[in-house]
Design a protein around this nucleic acid. Structure first.
Length: 603
RNA sequence: GCCAGCGUAGCUCAGCUGGUAGAGCAACUGAUUCGUAAUCAGUAGGUCCGGAGUUCGAAUCUCCGCGCUGGCUCCA
């Protein structure tokens, strides 16, 4: 990398030398070359290893190997050392173009059967290979010219993992080694720091430290126990949403957790979602623990004749669902087997679709903002135009839906990415991924059209023409699931919730025993104003109690001593800003109430 | 589910090649009554994830479970 010109010298498959000035493109080539370098190091250290693929990825690179014994964590340092050695030797990346037959013969002879498979699938009559030392790889290129261009301080071998060949669990499993590389050592250091920061914010760690939730081995994996403090936060979130949804014309409904198999046969879940459902038999009848709320809401829709005058109907529910997830994918609160969706289904006419979608987009943005997220990415998933027959719904349906979705995005000046072929079979959708405080995306809100359930359940309403018409159905979740959302909130705020969400908003800290009486008065006064206030009357020094409260990330500490007791004040310590000095209790109370109603993220 | 690693007190961890389990914090008791991130002293706390095996002897070695962690196409 020429740091002055910020361009990377690369060699293309045809042997031509070029410069890549675009930083993103340069980084990709650099990482790809680093992955080849790692493969060269691995082949060198572990003879008999065969190659899978080794691409650059969004924050580094990996290489998949077939290696009978597997690799151990302890091997990583040796691999990294060998890579540095190969950098010192300044090996060249040497491209060559050969015929497909030649390539197959060559790789077969070397025992690289995975490469042979790839060549047979991907290559044309001519294909390119790159040689790096003893490593020859089927590769499009380009690559950097030689290993000497890699800064030995700007890459790092990270971890090993199993991975299925082509990501298919029916294929053989390979050993994947992940690494990362940056153009400069500073960027690598930043990245590693970011990993550290993410570790500090880990909701599993903070969830325990702040006593918010736990997962019990005895009760089973993927099932969340909400502790009193976690439940406080949850109820605040739910109350906020409930109020807002009623305000926006939603009705709340409640549906059973268990239903006969027929319901799920009608909905199609029994056929297509069976592997994720908890099914059990009683009295020779089969029941399903609900994995979704839609069929339930549909029952309510169908409980009576609907007129176009009733529409739109917006049914909301904090619906707890259970889905069997493979044990290996479970992760704290973020990926669980039982969770509560902030779910809603909107039934409306085709004419109402645009307005409903628009209102939804406003709602999504309002909610995100309220919880302190101001950056997001929007993805519009549409069908694969070449496989229209794989999708439910008519041509008309898809056009109407897509047009409503794009128009409402455009109207609001929201930028979006169009994801071709990413739609589910039953309708197009918008997903909103919000970006947290350290730049990580989290997929939360989703708005989906459903062209299949209204048909399967034969939904209808009587229109002004006196005839029965089929309503349009929308699925929508804002937070996604309450469990996941709390996990994201914990990580976003690193456990320091905004005051309106904090399970404990203030702790009263009496300096000595003779201040307990006044401290209790303070607590009582604030509690009477609906603030969540605790009192730390343990026989400890003030510094100890402050430290304890800071560790619990409690927004305010109210120190009570002789001065305050006689003046009717409280000495306020802010968790971020420290000592703010004494002030009258009432003015503190007023300030807090303002922060709460503004849903301020800080202080 | 699969691959790799891990599982010792409530938490964070120590325990070398097999010889009978330890620290800090937290908890509890007492002393202390303290002014913005840890007062001192003492006490208690363990089926070393569960089970089987090897051995005179297992936290340590082997096997089988359970759980956790990282990962399982961002495609030459």
């Amino acid at each position: 990398m020429d740091l002055l010109n910020m361009s990377l010298r690369v060699i293309y498959a045809d042997g031509k030398i070029g410069e890549i000035a675009d930083k993103g493109a340069a980084l990709e080539v650099y990482r790809h070359s680093a992955s080849h370098l790692m493969a060269a190091a691995v082949s060198n250290l572990f003879p008999g290893t065969h190659l899978g693929i080794g691409p650059a990825i969004s924050d580094g690179f990996y290489y998949d190997f077939e290696h009978a014994q597997g690799f151990a964590e302890a091997d990583l340092a040796a691999i990294e050392a060998k890579m540095k050695e190969l950098i010192d030797q300044n090996l060249s990346f040497e491209p060559s173009i050969i015929s497909k037959d030649q390539a197959i013969e060559y790789f077969t002879q070397r025992g690289e059967h995975l490469k042979v498979e790839l060549i047979q699938e991907k290559a044309g009559e001519q294909l390119s290979c790159y040689r790096l030392g003893d490593l020859v790889d089927f590769c499009l290129g380009p690559h950097i010219c030689s290993t000497g261009l890699i800064n030995p301080k700007s890459f790092h071998v990270l971890n090993i993992a199993g991975s299925y060949w082509k990501g298919d669990e029916h294929n053989q499993q390979l050993q994947r080694i992940y690494g990362t590389a940056f153009l400069t050592s500073e960027e690598l250091a930043d990245y590693l720091k970011q990993l550290e920061e993410a570790k500090k914010r880990d909701h599993r760690k903070l969830g325990r430290e702040l006593d918010l939730f736990s997962i019990s081995e005895e009760a089973g994996p993927g099932l969340v126990f909400w502790h009193p403090k976690g439940t406080r936060v949850r109820l605040i979130i739910e109350d906020f949403l409930r109020k807002e949804l009623y305000r926006r014309g939603y009705e709340f409904v409640t549906t059973p957790h268990v239903a006969r198999d027929v319901l799920w046969k009608t909905s199609g879940h029994y056929e297509y979602y069976r592997q994720n459902m908890y099914v059990f038999k009683i009295d020779d009848e089969e029941f399903v623990i609900k994995p979704m709320n839609c069929p339930g809401h549909i029952q309510i829709y169908k409980s009576q004749m609907r007129s176009y005058r009733d529409l739109p109907l917006r049914f909301a529910e904090f619906g707890t669902v259970y889905r069997y997830e493979k044990s290996g994918v479970l992760h704290g609160m973020l990926r669980v087997r039982g969770f509560t969706q902030d779910d809603a289904h909107i039934f409306c006419t085709r004419e109402q679709v645009y307005e409903e979608i628009s209102a939804l987009m406003d709602l999504v943005l309002f909610i995100m903002n309220s919880f302190g997220f101001d950056q997001y990415k929007v993805e519009l998933s549409v069908r694969d135009e070449s496989k229209k027959e794989d999708y439910a719904g008519t041509e008309d349906d898809w056009q109407m839906a897509e047009e409503a979705l794009t128009r409402s995005l455009r109207d609001r000046g929201i930028e979006w990415t169009r994801m071709e072929g990413e739609a589910v079979f039953y309708g197009p959708k918008i997903d909103v991924k919000l970006i947290d405080a350290i730049g990580r995306p989290w997929q939360l809100s989703t708005v989906q059209f459903d062209f299949t359930l209204p048909k399967r359940f034969d939904l209808s309403y009587i229109a002004s023409d006196g005839l029965a018409h089929q309503p349009v159905m929308l699925h929508r979740a804002l937070l996604g699931s309450v469990e996941r959302f709390l996990g994201v909130l914990i990580e976003h705020y690193a456990g320091a919730f905004p005051i309106w969400l904090a399970p404990v908003q203030a702790v009263v800290i009496p300096i000595s025993e003779r201040h307990h009486e006044y401290a209790r008065q303070v607590q009582k006064r604030l509690a009477a104003a609906d603030l969540r206030v605790e009192i730390d009357d343990r026989n400890e020094k003030m510094g100890y109690k402050i430290r304890a409260a800071q560790t619990k990330k409690i927004p305010y500490m109210l120190v009570i001593g002789d001065k305050e007791a006689s003046s009717g004040e409280v000495s306020v310590r802010n968790r971020f800003l420290g000592d703010e000095g004494a002030q009258p209790l009432e003015s503190f109370l007023q300030k807090i109430q303002e922060l709460v109603s503004a849903r301020a993220a800080k202080p």
